[in-house]
Structures are given as structure tokens and as C-alpha cells.
Design a binder for these strands. Structure first.
Lengths: 147, 147
DNA sequence: TTGCTCCTCACGTCACGTGAGGTGGC
DNA sequence: TTGCTCCTCACGTCACGTGAGGTGGC
């Protein structure tokens, strides 16, 4: 019994689905359209196994989808950009001079700025809606007090 | 030429779609599934006409859908509840004693409270995401300064 | 070995998009 | 009358849901 090292636990699709609040079908579909990579060492017909890192990546994607309401096609672009930047980060230490480093950081900054922009616009719209609801609530309470 | 009274302008489906940021197809679909009422005096095969009040109602529904991500089935329930409350409001002045008025207001308050709850939960989730992005941004800026 | 959960088709569904072919109204 | 936009089918698509029938692993 080689015994999984406990630090890098292998999760089955049902477990990762539950942890991320989604379904196995959704995860397989995301894999099918290329939004998620085929999990490490998966052979057709056999069980998929996922790592804790996979949970985090999926969680992140689902959150962007849920909160920003972006399509899977757009989400794919986001994921690809993040993957590209992750690859760059791995080469970071050894290869790059200061100019290259600056370019990588500039790109990362632009990426984060784009997402922040979307998040803030949504937040503002929600705040507007909230204010309107609070105003309604006040009106109702005033009328109740008048009775 | 009777000339439209200008206060209650009749809008065509393309116009109301543009004003609410959606498409004619979506509006017809909402009508088809009973989310929107068939517009006042519409005969099959002939043009639909909408009022300014219709624009507001649709805008409201689209906003809830967009920002809260609720299904059309749930949206239908919301719309029906609002319709019922609007009907009650019209009867408000003449028929109801203080007890009935209180019940109507209590129901309205509960409705608004439910929506506020949803809006605030979403806002909190977005705020969390925003904070994480801002933290990332800070990290990137610090690294840039170190160059 | 028994029960799970997992697997792969494959068809169904929700919320529209997109023509096709035809009629209505400023 | 000419050009729009509108009309009603009806099929297509995106993002999965839901069995059907079968195999894998603690």
C-alpha cells in the first residue's frame, strides 16, 4: 500500500464538485470544451482525480462566472491568460532581466485592473439597487407608523 | 389624424428593446412563457405596442436577472407577487380598514427584505473579490517599485 | 463480494439567437 | 410606393440536467 502522501490528496470528481458547489457534469463539460485541463494522468473510461490546487482553480473560475456573469468563452480567455502568466512566473527567477520582469508585471497589472473594473461596475449597480430597496423600505415603515 | 397624446407614447418592440438593453426576441420570449403580459390590445400577426410603464417594468426585471442571476421561473414569481401587490395598492384607498392595510404593508416589507438580503449577499461576495484583487494589485506594484 | 461513485454516450431543457418567408405602418 | 421594422414559425446553440447501461475502486 503506497498510501497517498496526505499532503497531495487525490479527490474524485464528486468530492471536488461538492467542495466547489457545482456538479460532476459541469466539471466534465468544462473539460470537454477546454476550459479545464484534463486532470493529471486521466485515461478514458477511468476515474478522474483532482488535487487541492485544482479545487482552487475551479473555485476561482466559478466565482468569476457567478459574480460577473461572464460566458464560458470569455472565461476561457481569462483562464488562458492566467495560465500564461503562471508559466511566466515559473521562469521568473532564473531567466529574465529587469526589462522582461517589468513587462510581465505590467501585463499582470493590466489584467488585474480589467477585472477590478468589472467588479466595481457590478458593485456600483448593486449599490444603486440596494439604495432603491432601502428607500422603499423606509416608505413602507413610515406608512406603518402612520396607522 | 388623432395624434398620440405624447404623454402615453406607443413604443414598438425594437424601441423598448433598445431602451432596456435587450432584444425583441427576448421580449417575445418573456411574453411567450408568461413572464410579461401580452401588451395592451395586441392581436396575433400585428405589431405590439408598449408604454413607458412597460419600459420600467421590463427594466426592473432585467436588472434583477442580471444582478442577482435568478432564473426566469423565479423572476416570474417575483413579478406575480409585485403584480398582486400593485393590485392591492389600487384598492388601497377605498376598501381597506387599518388591519387590512397593515397586512398589505407587512407583506410588502417582507418582499423588500427578501430582495435586500439577496442584494447584500451578492455585494458582500463582490466586496470580498474586490479586496483580493486590490491585494494582488498592491503586490504587483511593490514588485515594480523594487525594480 | 457488495455498494457506492464513477464512466461514456446521448437525448432533454432553458434562454434565447438566427434565418426564412411574409405582412404592417410612417 | 419604397424601406424600414415588425410578424410568426422553426431550427440552432450554449450550458448544462438527466437517464441508460456499464465498469472501477475502497
Amino acid at each position: 500500500m503506497p498510501a497517498s502522501p496526505d499532503t497531495e490528496r487525490a479527490l474524485r470528481i464528486g468530492e471536488i464538485a461538492e467542495r466547489t458547489g457545482t456538479t460532476p457534469r459541469t466539471i466534465r463539460y468544462y473539460e470537454e470544451i477546454g476550459l479545464l485541463p484534463s486532470p493529471e494522468g486521466h485515461v478514458k473510461g477511468r476515474h478522474r482525480t483532482y488535487s487541492a490546487a485544482d479545487v482552487e482553480r475551479l473555485e476561482e473560475l466559478l466565482r468569476l462566472r457567478e459574480l460577473l456573469g461572464i460566458s464560458l468563452e470569455e472565461l476561457k480567455e481569462v483562464a488562458e491568460r492566467e495560465e500564461a502568466r503562471a508559466a511566466l512566473r515559473r521562469e521568473w527567477e532564473q531567466a529574465s532581466d529587469a526589462g522582461a520582469k517589468r513587462r510581465i508585471l505590467d501585463e499582470a497589472a493590466a489584467h488585474v485592473a480589467r477585472q477590478l473594473e468589472l467588479v466595481r461596475r457590478r458593485k456600483a449597480a448593486l449599490a444603486q439597487l440596494e439604495h432603491e430597496l432601502v428607500a422603499k423600505q423606509r416608505t413602507i415603515r413610515n406608512r406603518l407608523r402612520e396607522l
